[in-house]
Design a binder for these strands. Sequence first.
RNA 1: GCCGGUGUGUCGGAAUUGGCAGACGAGACAGACUCAAAAUCUGUUAUCCGCAAGGGUGUGUGGGUUCGAGUCCCACCACCGGCACCA
Length: 802
Amino acid sequence: MKYDHKPIEKKWQEKWEQSGVFHASNNSDKPKYYALVEFPYPSGQGLHVGHPRSYTALDIIARKRRMQGYNVLYPIGWDAFGLPTENFAIKNHVHPAEVTKKNIARFKQQLQSLGISFDWSREINTTDPEYYKWTQWIFLQLFKRGLAYKKEMAVNWCTSCKCVLANEEVVNGVCERCGSEVIRKVKSQWMLKITEYAQRLIDDLDLVDYPERVKAQQINWIGRSTGAEVDFRTTTGDKLTVYTTRPDTLYGVTYMVVSPEHPMLEKWADKLRNMEEIRAYQAEAARKSDFERTEVAKDKTGVRLDGVSAINPVTGREIPIFISDYVLVSYGTGAIMAVPAHDTRDWEFAKKFGLPIIEVVKGGDVQKEAFTDCATGVMVNSGILDGLTVEEAKKKIIEYLTEKEIGHSKVNFKLRDWVFSRQRYWGEPIPIVYCEKCGYVPLPESELPLKLPEVKSYEPTDNGESPLACMTDWVNTTCPHCGGKAKRETDTMPQWAGSSWYFLRYMDPHNSEAFAGKDALKYWTPVDWYNGGMEHTTLHLLYSRFWHKFLYDIGEVPTPEPYAKRTSHGMILGENGEKMSKSRGNVVNPDEIVDTYGADTMRLYEMFIGDFEKAAPWSSAGIKGCRRFLERYWNLQNILTDEKGVRKSLEIAFNKTIKKVGEDIEALKFNTAIAALMALMNDISDAGSITSDELKIYTILLNPFAPHVTEEIWETLQLGSGMVCQQEWSKYDEAKCVEDTIEIAVQVNGKVRAHLSVAADIEKDAALSAAKAEEKIAAEISGKKIVKEIYVPGKLVNIVAK
RNA sequence: GCCGGUGUGUCGGAAUUGGCAGACGAGACAGACUCAAAAUCUGUUAUCCGCAAGGGUGUGUGGGUUCGAGUCCCACCACCGGCACCA
C-alpha cells in the first residue's frame, strides 16, 4: 500500500478534534505543563512557513509532555487588532471585524491542517469584547494607581499611518510597520509608566531562563547607567543641573550644553543678547525628524548663549553655555557638563568651537583625541582628586558634592514611558471620559466592555484625531463622577495591549467574573516554556513582563514573572537565502507544501532544516528527503516479523536512540533528534525486518514530529490500545546504551595510527599493552623512548614517543 | 562606537563540551531494475600524492597553551542581529 498522506491526515485531525485528547483540564491531579507560542496576527496573507517552525517545536514539547504524564496546556488565539486589517477594510469598504473574521477562519483551517495539538476549546481573540473587556479593566487598574497618565509631549508620528508610535516601534527613524518617515509632533497622549519598573525588569531577569541574547538585548534597551547629578550656578543666579556618568572629570569641564528644548532658555530670554539666533536654531532642530537628527550626527552644530554663563562648582571658573541638538531633552536633565578631554562628542564640539581642552585623567594625548578609558588613567589637574584612579575619584567627588549639597549620585535609564494611545479605529477603546470639571475620569468597571462603536469611515484623519472623534453620539456622554457633560477618549490602545496579558486568559478563557479565576491562575502560572521571535524582545516581551509585574503588585497574579523559560526560533528564509517577501518572489506557501507532501513531512522538514535558533533557507530538495524518510517508515509494515521484543542486535541502537531523541528535544535540537531516528531507520533497514515491539517504540518516538502517519500505523497494525499520543513516552536502559566491545583509536604523538577492538570496560594497562602489540604501533614506537601514555576510557590511547 | 552572535565539504548542517572532523539529509557520480523515464534499491563522494597498500594537508587568518584544539587563550579579518549624539 502506498503512503497517501491526505486521507490519513484528515482522518486523524478529525479524530483528535472529536475526542478532545488535547484539551487541558483545570481540575487535574497531574503535574501541569504550560507551553506557549506567540499567537499570530491573522493577516490577509495567511500563514507564513515561519509560523509552523515555532508551533511545531512546542507541539513536539507539548506532545512529549503529555506522554510523560503531564496535564498540558498548549493554547492558541488571535492577536487580531491592528493596522493592516484596518487598512484593508478602508480600501475595500468592509468592516474590520468582518475582515478579521475571515482571516481568522483561514488561519484556523491552515493551523488545523498542520496537526498541531492546540487546545481549540480555549481559543481567544483580542478583538472579542469579552476579551478586551479585561484589557480595558487592566488599563483602569493602571490608571487608578497612577501608572497610566496623559501628557502633552513630542511623540513619534508616522506620516503614513497617521498615528503615533511607541519608541519601540520606530526603527532607524522610520515606522517599524510601513517604513514611512517618522516626525516629531506635540500631542497629548496616554502614557504607561513602564519606567517605574525599569530596575525590576533588569533585576528579575535573574529569575528566568531566557537566552543570553534576549537578556542582553532587554538590558541594553532599558539602558541603566550610574552617575551623578551636579548643580552649576549661572551668572543669572539660577541653578543648571546636569547628569553625568563621569563626575570624576568635573575639573575638566570647560563649557556646558543644553538641549534646544531646555526650559531654562525661555526663562533667560530677556537676558540673552542673541535670542534671535537661538530661536532660529531651536526652530531648525524642531523641524528635523529624528532620522535627520541622527543622520548628521557626525557634524556638531550649536549656538553659544550670549549673556548667560555658568560657574564650575569646583574650580570657580566661569564657563560658556551652548545649545546644541546633540543633547537630548528626554534624557537625564536635558543639559550636560562638557569635558572635551574625556568625551568624544564634547571633544568634537570643542574643536569646532575652539574651546579649551583640559586634561584631568592622564593616559592619552587629549589634544589629538578624547581619552575615554576609565580603567588605566590617573587623575591630574583635579585638586582634591589628584593621584586617584577614576573609580576612586568618582566615589570621592560624589561624597564631596553630597556634603556641599551641590550634587548626589543618580541612576538613569534610557527606557522611556510607553506611549499608549493610537489615533486609529481598530483597537481597544480607552475607557476614560474627560469632564471639564472632574478631569480624566475612569469608566466604572461595571460599564466594561466599552465597545467599539460602528463608524461610517475608518479613514485616519489628517488633523491627528482618531476616526472615533467624529462619532459625536458616542463621544458625547456624561461624567461618571459628577453627571455633567463629558467627552469620551477617542484614541484607542496600541496592538501591544491585548498581547500583554493573553497568556493569562488561556488559563480560564470563559470566565466572566475575572480575567481568569484565582485557582486557575495559581495552577497554571507561570508559563513553563514560551517560544517566539527575537523581534519581540524589546516590544511584546518587555511590555508583557511589565504588565505581569503590575498585576503581581496588586495581587492579581501569583508570580513576579510571566514566563519561566523563553526560547527563540530563527527565521525561515527563501530558497535564495534572503528574507521571504512577495517582491523578492521567494515566498513558499505552506498550503502547497501540505498538499503535495503532507503536514507530517512539512513538520519534520521544518524541524530538520537546521539549528532551531538560527535562520535557515528553505530547500525544496531538502523537503523531499523528509518525505522519503516517512515513506521508509510507512514501508516498515512490509517487513514486520512475528518475532517479539527488541532483538539483541538492535537493542543498543534502540536504547541509544530513545535517550538521544528525548534529550535532544529538551535541548531544542530537533534536527539531531530526527537524524538519530533516521540513523536507526538505516539500522533497521540493514536488519531487513522489524518486530512489532520495535515498531511500537519507533512509532512513539516519531509521533511528536509526525503525528498523523504514526497514528495510522499504530492503528492499522494494532500496536496497542488507544492512540499513540496517549501512550507513555519510551524509556531506555542506561546500561544498554553502550556496546560490550568498542573500537578505540590508537594515536602515536597525537596522530591516529591504528584502531583497536577492545572490551568497553578495559583498563588502562590492558588497553596500552594491546595497543603496543598492534603491528603498526610497534613499528612506530620501536627504538623510541616512551615519554607519556594517555588513555581516555572508551575513546583512545595516545603514546608519546621520542 | 557599544552589546550579542556566527564562520566547518558542492549545499543545509553534526561533533557527548579538550579526545578518531564531516553524523544525518540534500546534491552529484556510477551501477541494478526498466523498451525508456520517473520512483526505488546498491555503492562512491573533504582535498592532494600514489595503480595500490599507504601517506601528507585540512574547521575564516596569524600566534599560543596542551600528549592532543573545530572546541581553550591572545591578536586580527569577514558576515549577521540589536542599540546608537543616552552625557
